[in-house]
Design a protein around this nucleic acid. Sequence first.
DNA 1: CGGATATTTGAAATCTCTCAACGACAGTGG
DNA 2: CCACTGTCGTTGAGAGATTTCAAATATCCG
Lengths: 258, 258
Amino acid sequence: MRDVDLNRIRGLQLFAGMSDARFTDATGGAFLQNFPANATLLYEGDPVDFLYILLEGTVELQGTWKDKESTLAILRPISTFILAAVVLDANALMSARTLEKSQILMLSAESLRRTMNEDPAFAVAVAQEVSGCYRGLVRSIKNQKLRSGAERLANYLLTLQVRQGGVETVTLPHEKRTLASLLGMTAENLSRAFATLSDYGVEVQGAEVKLARPVPLRRLAAPSPLLDNHMPPGKGTTGKAAKEMWPPSERSCSAERG
Amino acid sequence: MRDVDLNRIRGLQLFAGMSDARFTDATGGAFLQNFPANATLLYEGDPVDFLYILLEGTVELQGTWKDKESTLAILRPISTFILAAVVLDANALMSARTLEKSQILMLSAESLRRTMNEDPAFAVAVAQEVSGCYRGLVRSIKNQKLRSGAERLANYLLTLQVRQGGVETVTLPHEKRTLASLLGMTAENLSRAFATLSDYGVEVQGAEVKLARPVPLRRLAAPSPLLDNHMPPGKGTTGKAAKEMWPPSERSCSAERG
DNA sequence: CGGATATTTGAAATCTCTCAACGACAGTGG
DNA sequence: CCACTGTCGTTGAGAGATTTCAAATATCCG
């Protein structure tokens, strides 16, 4: 493990209150691994021996049942994943695989559990991190159960717009079929959802999507902090109001949602 | 606060590793409250000042968007709720209301956060509890995205059967319209889903549901520990295999799912 | 009993999925 | 350079699932 790699995660909320000694200890058995695109890191049901931290690339978390599969989240750096299974020493509920060439840091689950017990600040940080992920999932379920396909797409596009700095034309960061699965629909249906949104000024050209009439689009989408996380990760404002609306640990779980 | 009430929660995983002194401290600002049926405890978006612990009765957690609402979980004693918001000092993402007369213990969120910082074992227990809830939600999303309405109902019935001790005729613990919302469908559709399942030996008589042909029903439902939590709360076996399959904290989040 | 609420059923509309075909595109190898 | 191939995205048609609205029936509770 090179220091330069460890330093990249030293700044995470998760390790914030930790002493250097303890950090060194916790990351003792860690190693950095490079994966090609479409590499499966973990199958659902597998025992979890590591906490994964995505440093470069893209990782998809997915679930399977009876030959059907669904994307539950798409991760971008820097994100931890499978933390809850690590905490409980349980089997994975989701499969993880790379969508592109990725660099992933793997920390020993057992070391982390030991560190949790030895370092109170770390245990608190873990609780906060998992709580943030939990709240992300609550939003996810609400999004899924309360909105139609076109509404989910509209909100996805508006969230993307905020994350990309408010540009008029956003760039879809993933293949459309992956996006469809994330949004809980088939690829064909995503196509039709885009067609539906053309009535609201959405113009698609490959991965480029122009949101030409934001006002009617927002009226359809009705984004809400109770269902959507519009904060650009790592771009949180420092004002008190913004902090309370989007606590840091909630931002650190940077999964894009369906 | 009477000791007899505090003793009821003293045995929870959440407070297991805690010293009596610290427990007394943490529950200092606590109070017990009785609510009638259909009382709203908390609206989504509200600041969260308490950790709620359901001692008697039934509580529904629900989400709302644009005049639509959906039941996210139904809680039975003894369950904590809104823990993640307490940990992060954030606003509630779900509304909570009683479905029947309920007795609820309310612990000061601020005291709990302070206790987390002072008592490492408690911080670990919180992390484990939230992790268990997180995994419950992962199962929930997979259930919702991967299964059809009839499949969700079939699995709900089979889970109910296990929880009620393997009886042939299970008793629905909630109104059908509430159940429908939990399962992510309309009340009308739940009726039709029951009709569909009659081909699989499901006979409905009010709240009594006879599962007359378990084998074909199970083939349709295809229950899986990766999507369902079949363990009866408080009835976990003590064998090693069972423990690894259903870690204690995962059981403590006794939300019934849709 | 009466009235309110819950549940079921029917019919139509809407949404979503499946299957199939087609065009666009990139990479390969002749 | 150009067919060949495979993947991806779109479109159409039909089937299936789900929702909505309306009405009928059942159940609960005072």
